[in-house]
């Protein structure tokens, strides 16, 4: 394959022959490509996949807008920083995703997912209405709640509006339905049950047990709160604040609200009480007990200017009056940083 100076090497002839062969390969490639996208392939099509009236096409636009692929992978391509998202919807279901996406900085607690199931659209898409049935149907959601619920994630909070959350779920529903020819391969064993689950000796491992209490404590905590709140009004204020603090954790409030004055997804609670805020309708109100209570039970009724509506789920029918009072007392007690 070398050509000595002065020798005849037939470059032109060889060039023509190579081009002919290349043309043949190109024809094979184009035919295979054509065959790949015909309808006989029965591949999922984003136009046909809907979630809560949004098509997966709209979701794909949101997915690209936030450059999700810049951290995650999708069908295995992307940045290898966060987990692969292709089959996520099928594993954790729509309610978990809806609970996670608006406040990606924290893992959803069980109650946060449960609240989402109160939404008829989400429950219908999930195919179950109760949290127990949901956890059974989506064991990966159950595992995430049990192991991580209420803990901070490694993902920053992103300004994903309620509408965009639904679009994203529509897109993930589509990718989850895609036939990816057996990728990713299914593990044959339960990794957490094997002694090899910590392959780096000495590296810190979050044991499932150490995280579990957050979720396990849920029923007990809410029962306790109801019980003590029912006690006479003479109950110690600090006790009420402690209950509020516990409730804020259990219900996943802290996924969106910081304890100082910093705005994360929602406004920070520190120093919030007693300030004046301007609402979207132009009026100015003072943050007092009544305002906070109303904002918890029906947040969309009085949205503060510059916050998108529909981000926080209404807690009406989820928290009783005493629980709300405890949370209000807790917020009142927080001083600004």
């Amino acid at each position: 394959m070398s050509c000595q100076p002065g020798k005849l090497c037939w470059e032109g002839f060889k060039r023509t022959r190579a081009l002919a062969l290349l043309g043949l390969l190109a024809i094979i490639f184009i035919l295979l490509s054509f065959w790949s996208f015909t309808s006989s392939r029965k591949q999922a099509i984003p136009r046909n996949v809907y979630y809560a009236d949004y098509s997966a096409v709209e979701g794909k636009r949101v997915f690209q807008s936030f450059n999700c692929m810049g951290c995650h992978t999708i069908v295995g391509n992307g940045a290898y920083f966060g987990p692969d998202l292709t089959k996520l919807y099928g594993k954790v279901g729509p309610a978990w995703l809806e609970a996670f996406l608006p406040s990606a900085g924290a893992w959803p607690t069980e109650i946060a997912v449960q609240i989402k199931l109160n939404d008829a659209i989400i429950a219908e898409d999930a195919g179950v209405a109760s949290i127990d049935a949901y956890k059974k149907k989506y064991p990966d959601a159950a595992e995430r709640i049990a192991r991580r619920g209420g803990h901070p994630t490694m993902m920053p909070n992103l300004p994903i509006t309620a509408e965009n959350v639904r679009k994203l779920v529509a897109f993930l529903k589509y990718t989850s339905e895609m036939n990816t020819e057996g990728w990713p391969p299914e593990p044959k064993i339960d990794g957490l049950a094997t002694p090899y689950a910590t392959p780096m000796p000495g590296a810190a491992q979050v044991a499932p047990a150490s995280v579990a209490p957050a979720a396990a404590a849920t029923p007990a905590a809410s029962a306790g709160a109801t019980e003590s709140a029912a006690a006479p009004a003479a109950a110690d204020d600090s006790e009420l604040i402690a209950q509020g603090s516990q409730l804020a954790q259990t219900y996943g409030c802290l996924a969106c609200h910081a304890l100082d004055s910093k705005r994360t997804v929602g406004p920070g609670w520190g120093g919030l009480y007693g300030t004046d805020v301007k609402l979207t309708d132009g009026t100015t109100v003072t943050v007092d007990d009544a305002y906070i209570k109303q904002s918890i039970l029906d947040p969309n009724s009085q949205i503060v200017d510059s916050y998108p509506p529909g981000t926080m789920p209404p807690m009406q029918g989820i928290l009783n009056d005493d629980q709300v009072s405890a949370i209000v007392a807790y917020i009142r007690s927080l001083k600004g940083a």
Binding site: R148, T153, G191, L192, A197, T198, P199, M200, A203, V206
Partner: peptide, 14 residues
């Protein structure tokens, strides 16, 4: 093989 996912914090320490 182990089926661990990023979310558990299992991958980062390893």
């Amino acid at each position: 093989t182990l089926g661990l996912d990023w979310f558990g914090g299992d991958i980062a320490p390893a």
